[in-house]
Simulated scan of single mutants.
Amino acid sequence: MAIAHHVPASTVDAPSVPFPSDRRTPLTWSTAPIADAGGHPPTVLEWHSAVPAAPGRLRLFVACDVRDVRRVEAASARTGRPLGSFDIRYADCHQPYDLPLDGDAVRAVADEGVRLALASDPATEPLWIFSGPDAPVERRPSLLLDTEDPSAPAAALHHHLTSIASVQPFGWMEGCVLDALYDLHTTFPADTRAETALRDHLAVYVHGIRLRYEDPRSRPANDRVYGIEATLPFAVVAKRDPRTPRSGWPSTPGTPGPTPMDASRTPRPRPRAATPSLTPWPSSRRPPGTPGYARRPSASSGSAAGG
């Protein structure tokens, strides 16, 4: 069974392009733009380490939400040999994109590097990718080379999941990862890797008593919940520390009020709805073979049940 061997790019040389002022990339991982070839130089990736001779893929991770369609053209850096294109469509932050490469193309990339440019049609603004070296190996621009190791896929999955490399945008996607890490830890408590990863993941977004993250459009959403999908990560927070309710954060940044980690406000319990009482149907109005009870009509309904 073939699995992927990561060989991250040694350098990423990108044009100087300002990042959109109303958006933000997550974490502290460095990013690089891939801009329109008509107005900017290409982004160039180079590999200075040894690259095995094997077919594989060139992988990029999107670092800022994309709400349109963009095409990234890839070519060898010196000779300009076309390698293919990335078809980027409405990508989430942290979403990977792969470009398949045969063995000859991998050798060309290893020897020359690869230049990336955004096709002018239909793109309207640069594409931002994670560039490292502060990002995990799995999130940098990388060659993923096919190797044969039938025992490794499960171990590779476990290694990736129980690391910061599996972090996702705060909301339902990161909530699913947190659920997996929590279940893995509680099922195999002697293995501390899942619990360590769980703490590392929460530390990405929870800083003391503050919450720092971006909404699905890469806009800062500090100390507030952008919508219902942002609530899933709090399920694991509550399961890990049920004595501390996480509720009552401000609806907008700077609004007076308790923070996400404030334990002083406990949600009020909702009143339970009264259980409807049952009353016998008159036997003259009951069809043969049916139960003799029905819901009693409420005083405000103005109509009789069953008619």
Rank of each mutant, 00 (worst) to 15 (best):
M1Q: 11
M1W: 09
A2H: 12
A2S: 11
A4N: 14
A9G: 06
P18I: 05
P18N: 06
R24S: 15
R24K: 12
W29R: 07
W29I: 04
S30H: 08
T31M: 07
A32T: 00
A32M: 00
I34N: 04
D36Y: 01
G38H: 09
G39N: 13
T43M: 02
W47I: 05
R57Y: 14
L58P: 02
R59H: 01
V62D: 00
C64Y: 01
V69S: 11
R70P: 01
R71W: 10
V72H: 03
S76R: 03
S76Y: 00
A77V: 01
A77Q: 05
R81L: 14
L83Y: 09
F86C: 04
F86V: 02
D87W: 11
I88E: 00
R89I: 04
D92F: 11
P96K: 07
P100I: 06
D102F: 15
V106S: 04
A108K: 02
R115F: 00
A117G: 13
L118S: 02
P126I: 05
V137N: 04
R139C: 03
L144E: 15
L144T: 03
D146W: 13
S151E: 13
A165D: 09
V167G: 04
V167Q: 09
Q168T: 03
W172D: 15
V177C: 03
D179R: 11
A180V: 13
L181Q: 06
L181E: 07
F188Y: 11
A197N: 08
A197S: 13
I209A: 13
R210E: 15
R212Q: 14
E214N: 14
S218Y: 01
R219T: 04
A221V: 03
N222S: 11
D223F: 03
P233R: 05
A235I: 13
A235F: 08
V236S: 14
D241R: 12
R243A: 14
P245F: 01
R246D: 00
S247Q: 10
S251D: 14
T259W: 06
M261S: 11
S264M: 08
S264A: 13
R265I: 10
A273Y: 06
T279K: 10
P280H: 08
P280T: 06
S284M: 07
R286P: 00
P291H: 05
A294G: 14
S298H: 07
A299M: 05
S300W: 10
S303K: 09
